[in-house]
């Protein structure tokens, strides 16, 4: 058992040495794989960041209903019932003007400015949580509520987030297509590299077959070669993404500070990083396997 492990280790070492022989060709191959992988993986990271931001900002869409300043308590009660009975409404929440002012003070850091006001400029308001629907039905509901008595204005919040989320879904699909295409490219790169390897190692393969090597023995170094090259490509992609995000984060910080908020791009988390490395290793192995299956039979001793 121990020496079988040692044998595999020695095959792995030989395969790795062959990747870097000649060194420049090996590095170029790894770089090509790294770039090919970093494109979809990097876009995936950006999308994850955008999705996080959208969720943080939106939650679910709401309709804010602002009442006119002269609305009395029984007007408010009547409106509350009307709203609550509406079939498209899930839940109604009343926000008294004083509470709204308090919230404004706490959440925006404008306490000084608000403190300087003589009286509360905010109207009473309802926050309506509509039943799930698309952007059109929500807009129809908003218009309808706008015509109710004592309603000054009805505003549909976060419908832009809805739209943005749909856009992000579209972008995710685009990234998936790109990832599939570049994965095929990666398999093709490995396929070709292994073909060249088989040609260079032709003598060794032929002699090995003549002195009793099984097909598994002959295949092994090429499979290790492909898998190792894929793994190194994956590591290259990881480094490219991490470095690019670090570069982007500095100007982004400055920018977000100008908008008085904190936003940094998160890099790949542990699970995603491992998936990236395993995936690239697997693609390399697959390319090598296809190539070996195709080309090894052509080297028959004579």
């Amino acid at each position: 058992m121990k020496h079988i492990f040692a044998q595999h280790l020695s095959v792995l070492r030989t395969a790795t040495r062959r990747i870097f022989n000649p060194p420049l060709a090996g590095l170029l191959n790894i770089m090509v794989i790294g770039i090919a992988l970093s494109l979809p993986a990097g876009m995936y990271v950006l999308l994850q960041n955008a999705q996080g931001l959208v969720q943080q900002l939106s939650g679910t869409p709401q309709i804010s209903v602002f009442l006119s300043m002269d609305a009395k308590a029984d007007d408010i009660e009547k409106l509350r019932k009307q709203l609550a009975q509406h079939p498209a409404v899930e839940r109604v929440e009343f926000v008294p003007r004083d509470q709204a002012l308090q919230q404004l003070k706490q959440s925006t850091g404008l306490a000084d400015v608000i403190g300087g006001l003589e009286k509360n400029p905010l109207p009473d308001a309802f926050v309506i949580h509509p039943k799930p629907g698309n952007a059109q039905t929500l807009d129809k509901l908003r218009t309808e509520i706008g015509t109710f008595p004592k309603v000054e204005q009805a505003q549909l919040d976060s419908v832009w987030a809805y739209k943005l989320e749909a856009l992000l879904k579209f972008a995710t699909l685009a990234v998936l297509i790109l990832a599939s295409l570049l994965s095929l490219a990666l398999i093709a790169i490995t396929f070709n590299t292994i073909r060249l390897q088989i040609l260079t190692q032709r003598d060794e393969i032929e002699v090995s077959k003549l002195i009793g090597a099984s097909n598994g023995f002959i295949r092994r170094p090429f499979l290790y070669f492909g898998a190792m090259q894929g793994l190194l490509g994956g590591i290259a992609a990881y480094l490219i993404i991490t470095a690019s995000l670090a570069l982007l984060n500095r100007p982004l910080n400055t920018l977000s500070q100008l908008y008085a908020s904190q936003f940094t791009l998160h890099s790949l988390n542990l699970g995603d990083s491992l998936s990236l490395l395993l995936f690239s290793l697997y693609l390399g192995w697959l390319g090598a396997w296809l190539s070996v299956a195709r080309h090894l039979a052509q080297v028959e001793p004579r």
Binding site: D203, V207, K209, L210, I211, G212, N215
Partner: peptide
């Protein structure tokens, strides 16, 4: 074909063209 390796392991072959690596 799968049995060939085991036959050849019992043979020592000295090739006309050596076939050294």
């Amino acid at each position: 074909a799968g049995a060939l390796p085991f036959l050849r392991r019992n043979l020592g072959i000295i090739f006309q063209d050596h076939k050294l690596l």
